[in-house]
């Protein structure tokens, strides 16, 4: 009776309070949830529609400004939404800035590798084969395709699921009573989940490392000289073309210069940060 009275009076008992505090702590650790943009609320939706309208009326400069404004609102802990990148890529394309368009399509594909339109438009830009990757062993190709078909975030979900399943089954196996049916089943579940975890982990971990630690850059200007050392007075080693995709091998401590590697021939050189867009 006392408990009921407390509930009816709106007061929270100690255990419930601790539970709610724990939930709040978890949400706090998860970071601020993504800002939801309702169809009719705020200026974001209006600007989005205005950008589309400007695009329709061929006012591409206005569309660019609006989309870039939206892009600047993207918080640093995340990536811009692929649709925003894709649309901005289309605007750049219409403005004749193919390097920037390729950069935006690449950003869209980084966040959504199965974005068919972004892939298609990127292929339209890169018709000269300048971005040919080095040939890899034929058995690796389907695996690489599968790994690239999903983002690291997408790979992390099944990995985590099997990880949790393996851990749960492991707990039952460790704490359960030996020999009973549940204990026997838990061994098989734990083994199977470990296999699943290793399988998805084999895709998630390399994809995660690639995404987080091996950034890719897209050349924004036409014919950018890549030099042998950071500095405008250094000798030119080779030249890269607009829309070309490069691997960034070092960016820290080079005072506005990046060390890049061209995947097609493995050549490494330095170019100014402003000449490329980093994904």
């Amino acid at each position: 009776m006392k408990t009921n009275e407390r509930i009816y009076s709106g007061r929270i008992n100690r255990a419930t309070g601790l539970f709610l505090a724990g939930i709040c702590l978890l949400i706090g650790m998860a970071g601020a949830p993504p800002r939801v943009l309702g169809a009719g609320e705020g200026t974001t939706a209006e600007r989005w529609d205005a950008a589309a309208e400007a695009y329709r009326t061929k006012d591409f400069e206005q569309a660019r400004q609006l989309y870039e404004g939206l892009l600047n609102e993207v918080s640093e802990e995340g990536r811009p939404h692929p649709e925003l990148c894709y649309n901005l890529g289309n605007v750049y394309f219409q403005l004749g800035q193919k390097g920037r368009a390729a950069w935006m399509y690449e950003r869209a594909l980084a966040a959504a590798p199965r974005h068919a339109d972004a892939r298609r438009n990127l292929a339209l830009i890169r018709t000269d084969g300048a971005n040919a990757e080095a040939e890899s062993f034929f058995l690796f190709k389907p695996l690489a395709w599968l790994a690239q078909h999903y983002t690291a975030g997408e790979w992390s979900v099944p990995f985590l699921f099997f990880y949790g399943l393996a851990a749960g089954a492991g707990l039952v196996w460790i704490l359960g009573r030996r020999g009973v049916r549940l204990w026997r089943v838990s061994r098989w579940v734990c083994g199977g989940a470990c296999v699943g975890m290793l399988f998805f982990g084999a895709f998630f971990v390399p994809r995660y490392i690639q995404t987080e630690y091996h950034p890719v850059a897209v050349v924004l200007d036409s014919s950018v000289p890549v030099r042998v050392a950071p500095g405008a007075d250094q000798d030119v080693y080779f030249e890269v073309q607009e829309t070309e995709r490069l691997e960034v091998t070092a960016e820290a401590g080079l005072a506005g210069w990046l060390r890049v590697k061209r995947p097609a021939d493995g050549r490494v050189g330095f170019l100014p940060e402003s000449a490329v867009g980093i994904l």
Binding site: A30, P34, V36, L37, G78, F93, N121, F204
Partner: peptide, 22 residues
């Protein structure tokens, strides 16, 4: 070019699952 995509996304920022605090 393929067409522009007009539906407004639910959020402009996409945070990868592995980047979330949870």
């Amino acid at each position: 070019l393929a067409y522009l995509h007009t539906p407004l996304p639910s959020a402009l920022t996409v945070v990868s699952f592995y980047r979330q605090g949870i």
